[in-house]
Write a protein that binds this DNA or RNA. Structure first.
Lengths: 217, 217
DNA sequence: AGTGGATTGGGGTATTTACCCCAACCCTGT
DNA sequence: ACAGGGTTGGGGTAAATACCCCAATCCACT
């Protein structure tokens, strides 16, 4: 049996190395490369063509989902496993949209990660229990269940764009300038975002955006 | 030579186990226990009396500094090493006040952690370069340098209290009600906080409070 | 062809914020 | 005894926010 070739992506050298050593306990795994951010992960991935990419998401925004999507478009066969300490619906949804084969909590023991790797390498999926209860399968692809969608009420692209500016403390006038729109339009988007999220002031909005990983604190 | 007995505290099972395996590469280290949060760490520490405690700080507020302080008061000889992916002045200051012997960034390679462990076990200290530039030594104990203190300007108790409410999105009127004070007083505190921190809107204030661990996102 | 959602924008208003001024009071340290 | 910092509050103003109303455009879906 051939080894499952693994690429690790995590911005913490300590965690990265530690995971690599851990996975070396399984003879069927071979960690062929590591990268310290999603961008580097993309480059290394196309170069090494691993079977499975284990990608840590937590800190620096949503670029990892972006990178994952681009990786999948170039290497259709690669399986992506997301590791996270947060289980926000937005993360889960983005991961699923990016074509993740697995999503698991960092709190799980290494055995679970090993199982997930074997599972996805064989063409399957793995999702932690808390996540499985929030997603639905359809034609072999997964998406957020409606219940969860209601919780992470679906914001449109434009709304999310405005939300990110709002949550960084820009005034509506400033945002209007940046987006080449009327302040009144920003006002409209802002009001609809607040309505959808049932949030009624900017501070709560900012905290929401931080929790959902839309911006850093 | 006797082994250095180590206790690992990290809320991610994956990271915890991975670190343990990593440290097993050094014969002079013995990981005698692990805990998944600061509270459990306190209990395990008094039970096992390790030489060194490696404690991860990132997520759940400031309890770890609290726990660290209590551990130090019960086991004066134990050395505490903090791991963090953030280098906020408030964290550093809290860690130093709690009696940390080392503080290092998670981005460092495992060798650096090993070095730090050896160093503190021998009675020394270890701080990453970025940190060493921000702290000063005095009579064997360390504290934040004035420059850094200027950046994390010293807020009074009352100011911090008001800041925490402000950062949670309460209006000044609501805060005044909660604290049995005039809205004008809250206004005064708020203005002084913004002045000291050189922050000019509530959203930035909230993000500051979240970064500093004063509130959760 | 027509419905609906997304995007864009305007009018108006009440509340809240940020910022300026000022001044008591109390407590602590010299 | 006196200075200085912390805490408490007031008056006033300009800006920003939250929230209500409404409507034109455009694009996709059936």
């Amino acid at each position: 049996m051939e080894a499952i070739r693994i690429l690790l992506v995590d911005d913490h050298a300590l965690v990265r190395e530690a995971l690599a050593v851990q996975l070396a306990n399984w003879v069927e795994f071979e960690v062929v490369g590591m990268a310290e951010d999603a961008g580097a992960g993309l480059n290394v991935a196309v170069e090494l063509k691993p079977d499975v990419i284990v990608m840590d998401i937590d800190m620096p925004g949503i670029i990892c989902f972006d990178a994952a999507e681009r990786i999948k478009s170039r290497l259709a066969d690669v399986k992506i496993i997301f590791l996270s300490s947060a289980l926000h619906d937005h993360y889960i949804e983005s991961a699923l949209k990016a074509g993740a084969s697995a999503y698991l909590h960092k709190g799980e023991p290494t055995e679970t990660l090993a199982m997930a790797i074997r599972e996805v390498a064989a063409g399957g999926n793995y999702f932690s229990d808390e996540i499985r209860s929030r997603i639905v399968e359809k034609d072999g692809s997964y998406s957020l269940a409606d219940g969860a969608k209601l919780r992470s009420k679906i914001l449109t692209d434009r709304e999310i764009e405005v939300l990110r500016y709002l949550a960084r403390g820009l005034t509506k006038k400033e945002i209007a300038g940046l987006m080449h729109l009327s302040p009144k339009t920003i006002e409209s988007h802002s009001a609809r975002v607040m309505d959808k999220l049932d949030i009624h002031d900017r501070v709560e909005l900012a905290r929401y955006a931080i929790r959902e990983g839309l911006i850093d604190a």
